[in-house]
Structure formats: structure tokens, C-alpha cells
Design a protein around this nucleic acid. Structure first.
Lengths: 342, 342
DNA sequence: TCTGGCAGTCTAGCGCATAGAGTGCTAAAC
DNA sequence: GTTTAGCACTCTATGCGCTAGACTGCCAGA
């Protein structure tokens, strides 16, 4: 691939750059003439046409039909993102605005996530998605056993760092609240600050019921399917207005992707601190062929991490999207490290 | 309104009924002739046309244009729902299937809500929405104070019934975890099983820090804006495929409604046990003019209640929707009363 | 009160012609 | 060798006219 990319002359790069920018802005195929007047190119439209033909030959552009302007291909966007975009940063003013919003929010992770989703959607003009940070090695902080119905008990499990999970369990024989509290106390003193493997190996002197609870604890600690409630979204309505989603099938693909965020796991393999760009489903996601994603992990590597990102049409303002995702991810990482580090 | 409705002859009612059913099924205007062969009407198409004209005169039907079939108006749907539908119940078999699914799910409220959303979306062919049950008079079960960063403390508040809220607070001067635990213990013994007003009136012998925490407790207990994470949705992708949502503006209205479920508060005023049907936005929601909602509250009145329902085009299978919403709401009410009653 | 029949109306679809936008190519100019 | 001007060509979008077809509305008769 590199050999091909090297062949682009500076002017061809400029032209590709301009085409991406104007197409992103206008959603209409870009003609050679319109490029001239838009930007200060000091050549004629015929010259631009020649370069366009070369770029099309190399696979960076297409034609909807013979007498239409040019449109970037996925490969064109990829080249744009990796070679032409450079290191974009959000303007200082916007960064300040965003940071200000975060500092004004209540000191709650859920608020921050919601805010992150709103900022991403607005600034990157896409549908945003933010998943809660999850502990890589959850440790128990505290557990409560609450008697409800005769044979039903509610277990509440608080992890170090404050994540909470709850689950019902059924009793074979009834226990009153005092007995439950006693069991909870025993388990608390036994397993406080333990991780899953410690809980699994350390099983001394437990009643049958306590052993049952212990098994449930292990299950909850190794279960890594994030409850869907821990996902925040925003901007779907706006992005569905984009012209690429007048076709219901495209719209459906996007909405499906957002409703089933578990697929992100398969997509995202970047480290905290880097931003990953997936263009046009990148072959793997046929249905998302006209969508792009800009994703990042945030949090503290090896400790607690979450995912955030933006979905939109391939005709996406990549500069804004990437810089916003990076900035918001960094902010969220700081918040996580403030919150969860001991 | 009653006088007008009384004027409908039995045959006119039959015709309205048939038109609603076939239009819901086909999404195409219904002609007098197609009605004849669809149902065993023993009259001619001309007679049907006459009755159709009467029904249109009375406002129950419209014409897209002169030479098109008839389409029910909002008023027509309203009449259909209130006079023609009768008491519909889900077939026993489906009820069993649904109940079976609930019993197979893990004993977790979040799973039940998700399942409820899935069942509603699937059975009523609409976008579903389920909000978590909220305690009307929350009582404190337990609180934890967790030291994170030097001046940051995480408060975790567990309510009777297992609802959990968390919030950060900043310290004016640093405290270590032991001091925090001690404060938490004091507050726990002081305020266990208290409701908001009790916490507010009872403030004896607290340090400045403990008083701060107490104020935060009160705030969290009276704050009734449900965290958006406690809302489950499903079926949006499917319902957007319906022909009424090829227009982006209609689609946008629907998606907006789902993204901003707080508006439900203004809509829903029914009691637990009754199902509320809002047709075509019912004048109040101009943007939702081509949408209907079937909503219900569930839970235990005066104790803990949530909302669930279905959004779809006005051309909605009201029979299925109403019976499903009612059945799922009843199921969820049972679960809530099992879970939360002491 | 119902029905058969007929005139009237509107849409959806097709074919056609046209204007316009944009390219591709070639031959000349730099 | 590279750039440019110019021109032929292609394809779309739009508008018009026409027709077939689907329904209705209404009237006169059963």
C-alpha cells in the first residue's frame, strides 16, 4: 500500500484533502470547477480533472455516474485520516468550554458519562456512545443481604471504586433479616478487598447458605457482560437527519449498532490514549458500510476502563471527531483515575 | 361526544372495525370493494361506500385523495379503542411464553426490565420503553463512604428495596478511610430505615463533615429525576422500518421522544392497573402527530412504581399492544411487590 | 333501504424531450 | 513534460403529456 501512497504528488494530496473537506461539508459530489473557486488552487479545472482521474485510478475517489463530481472512497477517507489530517487538536476555547461543563456537573460518574455523550454527539456531529468504566480486577468492598419475600433475598455487592451490582437469590429454607445480616457480616470480614480468584480459593468455615452467596459473588465478579444500563447514548435523532440515512436500511443498520453495543468489544482493540478510526465498517461490518466510527478507550489501563466514541456516516468530520473523542477520553481518564485510585 | 358516537349503526361499527384492522395490517387505504371480499359483509360495495361517507362525515375516516380508499382518523382509532375493541386479552399460550421467559431470567430487576422491553417491542410491534421502579418514600438501608483521591469521597447509598445511588463529594480537609468508616457507621446507626423527612428533622451530634453528608443524603432522597440509565428501550430499529417513518421528520420525532423519556411524566397519569392509550399525540404533542403510545404504570401504588409502554405509528395493533402492556405491567407489578415488600 | 351502474377524479407510471452539470479527451500552448 | 482551452459526450434531473387503473359519488331503479 505504501508504494501507492507515495505516488501521490503534493497537488494530488491537496486535491484529495479539498474534496474530502467539501464533500463532508456539502454532501454533494465535488466538481473540478467548484474546487477551484472554493480554494485558491492556481491551476485550471482541466488539470484538476486530470489529477482526479489519477486519484480515481488509485482508488481514492469515485464517480456516482459519468457526469457527476467526485466522492471520496473509504480508501480515500483512510488516506485522509492517516496522511493528510495530521495531529488535530480541539481549539483551546472549545476545550475550555467542555472542561468547564465537566467541572460544573455534579460529582457523579453517571452525570459525566451523560455529559460526555452529549459533548461527543454535538461536537462530532454523530451518534455517541459511552460505556461505564469497568474494573479489570474487581475487588469486593462490601455486601448487603436484604430479606424481602419469605424465600427471596436481595444481594447488593459494592466493589472497590463504587461499582454496584445486585441480584436476587432464593432460599431453600426461610431466614430472617438478623440471620441474613449475620451471614453478611461474616462474608464481609472474610472477603473484604478480595478479588475473584481470592474468593474462589478462600472458603473456610461457611454455612451452606454462605457458600451459595459466595458462589454468586464469584459469578458476579467474573461476569463481564456490562449491564446495558451502563451505556449512555446521544445524538441519534440528529444523525438520522443526515442524507445518507434517508434509506431505511442504512438507518436500521445504525440504530441496530447503537442498540447492540456489545459489538464494540469486537471492534475496539486500541489502548487507552489512542483513538481508533473505523471507516465504512472496514469490510468486517457489511451493514455498516456507509458508517464510520471514531472510538477510544478511557480510564486507567489494567485497572478500570470504559469505551466511548462516535458513530456517523463515512462522510464524517474526522478532524473534529478525532480531536473531540481524544479530548473527552482524556478528561474521562483523569476522572476515573481521580475516582478509583486509592 | 357521546351523542355522535351513539349514531353509529351496527353496520357502521363493523365497517369502521374492519377498516381499522385491514389498514393496520396493510398500511394501504382501504377501498369499499376490498372490504367486501376480506370480510363476509353481505351488502354491496355501494352500501359500504354510503356508510363510509357517513363515517367520514362524522370524522372517523379520511381520504388521502378523491379516488383513494379510506383511512381511520385519530378520532376513528379512539372510537375503535374505546367502543369496538372490548376487553382484549393475550392468548393463553403467549401469556405462558412470556411468563416462562420471566421465570427463566436471572433474579435481577435489570434483567426483568430488559426482558419486558424486548417482549413489549416484539409483541406490540413498537418501540418500547421501560423505566425502573422508583420508591415513593425512599428509606435508607445502608451507606458507605469510600476514600478515593486526597480530597474526594465516594458516597454510596443503598435504599430499602435495593435501589442504589452514588455521588462524589469533596472534603475541605483530608480524612483517611478509617475516619470515613467511622462517620459512615455513625450515620448508619443514626439514619437506618429513615425517610427523607426523618433525616431532615433528626440531626443530633454530627460533625461538620457528617452534616454535609446528611445534606447530601436528603438531596439524593428527594431528587426524583430518574437517572437515565434506569431506562430500557427496545425495538427502535424495527419500528423505524414502518412506512410512516420514511419521512425523516416523523422518524426524528419518534427518536426524540425515546431519547427524552422525561416527557412521559407529563403524559402518564393513569393508576397502576390501568392502561392509557394516547393516539396521535392527542393534540398536545404536535410532533408526535403520527404516533400513538400505549402506557401503563406498574409496581405497588404509593410505594414503588415505574412506567412501561410502547410507541409506534398511530396505525398500531392496539389490541395486541394494550393486552401486552397490561399483561407485562401486571407481571412486573408482581415482581416489584415480591421484591420490595418487607 | 339497498343496489347496479356510470360519470368523474385523482394517482402512479411511462415515455419523451430538454436543460444543465461535469467529465474525458485532444490538440495546442507553455 | 506539463498545463490549458475547448469541445464532444454522457448522464441526471425536471417537466410535460398521456394512459390505465383504482375508487368514489351519485342517481335512478329495485
Amino acid at each position: 500500500m505504501d508504494e501507492q501512497n507515495q505516488e501521490l504528488t503534493p497537488r494530488q494530496q491537496t486535491i484529495l484533502n479539498l474534496i474530502v473537506h467539501t464533500y463532508v461539508a456539502t454532501a454533494a459530489p465535488v466538481s473540478s470547477k467548484s474546487l477551484l473557486q472554493a480554494a485558491g488552487l492556481s491551476v485550471s479545472s482541466a488539470t484538476v480533472r486530470n489529477d482526479m482521474a489519477v486519484l480515481e485510478e488509485l482508488g481514492y475517489l469515485t464517480h456516482p455516474h459519468t457526469s457527476a463530481g467526485r466522492v471520496p472512497t473509504d480508501k480515500g477517507y483512510r488516506y485522509f485520516v492517516e496522511r493528510l489530517l495530521g495531529d488535530v487538536e480541539l481549539p483551546t476555547e472549545e476545550r475550555n468550554t467542555i472542561r468547564h461543563q465537566f467541572h460544573q456537573a455534579k460529582l457523579e460518574m453517571s452525570q459525566w458519562m451523560q455529559l460526555a455523550a452529549a459533548v461527543l454527539a454535538h461536537s462530532a456531529r454523530g451518534a455517541s456512545l459511552v460505556t461505564a468504566p469497568r474494573l479489570d480486577q474487581p475487588r469486593i468492598r462490601h455486601l448487603e443481604l436484604i430479606s424481602t419475600q419469605s424465600h427471596l433475598v436481595l444481594l447488593i455487592l459494592v466493589f472497590q471504586g463504587g461499582n454496584v451490582r445486585q441480584r436476587m437469590l432464593t432460599l431453600t429454607e426461610p431466614m430472617d433479616q438478623d440471620a441474613l445480616s449475620e451471614a453478611a457480616n461474616r462474608l464481609n470480614s472474610q472477603y473484604a478487598a478480595s478479588d475473584a480468584s481470592t474468593v474462589r480459593t478462600k472458603a473456610v468455615d461457611l454455612t451452606d447458605f454462605e457458600a451459595d452467596v459466595r458462589n454468586l459473588l464469584i459469578e458476579l465478579m467474573i461476569d463481564d457482560t456490562p449491564p446495558s444500563q451502563e451505556v449512555y447514548r446521544d445524538g441519534l435523532a440528529e444523525v438520522l437527519q443526515q442524507p445518507e440515512f434517508i434509506s431505511q436500511s442504512e438507518a436500521r443498520a445504525l440504530v441496530n449498532a447503537l442498540e447492540e453495543p456489545s459489538f464494540l468489544k469486537n471492534v475496539l482493540n486500541s489502548r487507552v490514549g489512542t483513538v481508533q478510526v473505523v471507516i465504512g465498517g472496514e469490510g468486517r461490518w457489511r451493514e455498516l458500510s456507509s458508517c464510520s466510527m471514531v472510538l477510544a478507550r478511557y480510564g486507567v489501563e489494567g485497572f478500570a476502563t470504559g469505551t466511548l466514541g462516535v458513530l456517523g456516516p463515512t462522510r464524517m468530520p474526522y478532524g473534529r471527531a478525532i480531536s473531540t473523542v481524544r479530548y473527552v477520553a482524556d478528561l474521562m481518564s483523569d476522572l476515573v483515575s481521580d475516582l478509583y485510585s486509592e
